[in-house]
Design a protein around this nucleic acid. Structure first.
Lengths: 217, 217
DNA sequence: AACAAGGTAGCACGTCCGTGCTATAAAAGG
DNA sequence: CCTTTTATAGCACGGACGTGCTACCTTGTT
């Protein structure tokens, strides 16, 4: 055998090359050749780890969904949720932080969102990617639903609003904000995202902006 | 000369073939050959009307932006805006109808939205399409801003909300709803769109759902 | 020392791509 | 009738694509 190499690790390196090409040039240019060059490998080497181009795409999107899901769950677990008798502002601040986690406010999350958009839009015409796109969609929706249901449970959701219905609206808003931030960053930058999120959070809760911690920047 | 043909009309027919291919297979498959076949023409015939593939794309996206803009303005002009002393519900109903105009609730607007998404996302990596994508973005934002400013003028905007800031949020929400309706139609169909729009409209105005005309369907 | 196995690399083929260029058919003007 | 103009069509080339297949090199085992 040649050099000792963890095959799984190599596959992930190649998938990361896919992410870079997709962000820079678009997913349609993530050809075997371009990906191999981006990864610094020969085309034959890449093919040693994947059955074909479709296999690379499936693996890459699976890896992406896995990482994004893990990161979201880890962050959700990391956020210490206030006790039931904490002031409303504390609950809403946690809720806001959770939503901020999936918005492209910093470079890392922006890169992630760019890859997400590339995959999720191309899944419309590449049916083999559709199940994963739907799964990511439902996962995010579920997280948002849980957060809002929790908010309703401690009474910080604005009266008259249904947690489930508001989850749908907030989900659409978050993805719309992400879309704008990625496609028209001149019109919606990180600070704009934060401000808009705060406005939305105040609109659906009983807490006013002054009660929340000041926006960074 | 051969058959009498209006060149501009032919170009539009070819552009419409681009739209169909983009919706069915994705914009990356809108090659000269595929478009020619879709239009029922020989590849050489298509090239008689366009300098090259990039020329086709530019023309198609220009035509799309032109038509979409025209349709939006025509609809805006067609909506009879209530007098200043009309009941609040009438103003809000008009506002809701205007927003519904850009949501993919019927087949025609769904097709339009699919093409819009294809163009606007590909503009991220095709710099020659970027100016047009930005123009469409700003146009829609401007229309929303005007509608909300008008609503504030007649006092139906919920107190404490800034028309301009709310225009940004509504814009993001509308594009997010469009994204969801196109990519995950099982999760957000036409009736879901209408219901979500109504909920948002009620959330940002002083009018309650019961005061508005019942939702179709 | 001989061998097996896995990593790396690349050739070769058929397909699709955009494009330069040419050929034919049909209508309008002299 | 003949020329000019324009629509339509197609050939041919170079390049990028995915993929079947082979060759070589490096390492661990017998």
């Amino acid at each position: 055998m040649p050099k000792v190499v963890d095959p799984e690790e190599r596959r992930q390196e190649i998938a990361e090359a896919v992410f870079r090409v997709a962000r820079r040039d678009g997913l349609e240019l993530a050809s075997l050749r371009n990906v191999a060059e981006e990864a610094g490998l020969a085309i034959g080497s890449v093919r040693h780890y994947f059955a074909g181009q479709a296999d690379i795409m499936n693996f890459a999107m699976n890896l992406f969904a896995l990482r994004a899901g893990k990161r979201l769950l880890a962050r959700a677990a990391g956020l210490r949720v206030p006790g039931p008798d904490a002031p409303p502002a504390a609950h809403v601040a946690t809720l806001e932080a959770m939503f901020a986690e999936v918005l492209p406010i910093d470079a890392e999350r922006r890169e992630e969102a760019e890859v997400w958009l590339a995959f999720t839009t191309s899944a419309r015409t590449r049916s083999e990617l559709a199940p994963l796109a739907l799964e990511m969609h439902d996962d995010l929706r579920r997280v948002i639903g849980r957060v809002l249901t929790g908010a309703a449970g401690v009474g910080v959701l604005r009266p008259g609003l249904d947690p489930d219905e508001e989850a749908g609206r907030t989900h659409a808003l978050i993805d719309g904000m992400t879309l704008h931030a990625i496609l028209q960053p001149d019109r919606l930058g990180p600070s704009g995202l934060a401000a808009m999120l705060r406005r939305h959070v105040c609109a659906i809760t009983t807490v006013r902006a002054e009660e929340l911690p000041p926006l960074p920047e």
